[in-house]
Design a binder for these strands. Structure first.
Lengths: 211, 211
DNA sequence: AAATTTCTACAGGTTTTCTCTTAGCACAAT
DNA sequence: ATTGTGCTAAGAGAAAACCTGTAGAAATTT
């Protein structure tokens, strides 16, 4: 049977090393590359062709979403599985749009990971139950995942979360306080919250802000 | 040299298994027990005496804080290291108060973990740079841990964090909105924050509220 | 070239927050 | 018996938040 060549991209050194060993134990599985840096992985793709890639979402320098996009530009049929924390789950739309073939949580078992890799390797898709549930929940609640915040809105969201008033934000960004209020209103509309308290909870849950 | 016996409590199966293998590679280190369930670990302590324990914070059933407390009741000199995600860092006060001897992030390296285990095993304390930074940040900002909130203030703090207005809180607690505002002012004075955004951050950092 | 999105800005309004101050009542301490 | 604390309440005003709507300029997409 052919050896499945696996690459791992994750900035959590301990986790990455652990996964490497876990996979090393599985028959026919072989880790051919691992790194904490998406750019190094993209360089690696210049001359190598892993069968399956395990990719974290939130990483410094270049995140998993961007790395996935660029990887697919390089090797259009590359098999990438997002391997992330549950807290990153809110980014699954971006990851799926970027073109991942699977989604496995870091809290899942070795067997689930093994299964996911095998399925994706054979050309299928594998998505954890939790992702399916999240999808179901969202569509039940009329959540529109398409409505994403613009860059400016994200800037302002961050400053709001840091406790700045509209006036202070305006001064910091050299724009009118009224403009800030407009952005603020639009953010409230898109996130479907009523006040700053709700906004902060949303921001934390969606990885726009961390406490 | 004596073998260091290590126990791991973490609900993320993949991570736990990985760590087990990582540690297994280190000379004189030996994983004698690992579980996803704090209760099973406490049972294990009835008859076994690990040298160092690696403990996650957020877990189902019984979290790392409670597990740590109970473990120390059973074996007062037990060496527990919190091994957590950065996002769990806000719970460090509770963990430290519970009695952990160290704090290492999951994103740190194998070498840092090895160092932490060795130091704690020899009776010392080990806290990641990130934790120190967080502590430094707090003391720089005139953080006073002495001023404690009254029960009523805690109730109201929680409702504020949930996004209720003073009016709504008043209705819920069958008191005047003016009274709520008084409490609110007192909370602001005690916590030394300027607005709701700051209050929520404070509440999360001090475990009065979690997102 | 046309359409869409984003960023900017303002008007006019209501609601809520926040500050400051004062004060009565209950309860516990000791 | 007095002192301290906690909960309650209120007035009065300034500041900020929040709502609704409009709208032009710039950038981006199609």
């Amino acid at each position: 049977m052919k050896q499945i060549k696996i690459a791992i991209i994750d900035d959590h050194d301990l986790f990455r090393e652990g996964i490497r060993l876990v996979i090393g134990q599985i028959e026919n599985f072989e880790v051919v590359f691992d790194t904490s840096n998406g750019y190094l992985f993209l360089e690696f793709l210049q001359h190598s062709f892993p069968d399956v890639v395990l990719m974290d979402i939130s990483m410094p320098l270049i995140d998993g979403i961007e790395t996935t996009r660029k990887a697919i530009e390089l090797q259009s049929s590359i098999n990438i599985i997002a391997l992330t924390m549950f807290s990153d789950i809110t980014n699954y739309t971006k990851m799926i749009n970027a073109g991942v073939k699977g989604f496995v949580l870091k809290k899942s078992t070795k067997f689930e990971l093994q299964q996911a890799i095998s399925i994706v390797f054979e050309g299928g898709n594998y998505f954890s139950q939790e992702i399916i549930k999240k999808l179901a929940f969202r569509s039940n609640n009329g959540f529109q995942g398409t409505d994403h915040l613009t860059n400016r809105e994200i800037d302002i969201l961050n400053l709001i979360c840091k406790g700045l008033t509209s006036q202070e934000i305006a001064e910091k960004l050299f724009i009118s306080a009224k403009t800030v209020e407009t952005h603020r209103s639009n953010i409230f509309l898109k996130t479907n919250v009523r006040n700053i308290a709700g906004l902060i909870v949303w921001a934390v849950n969606n990885n726009y802000f961390s406490i």
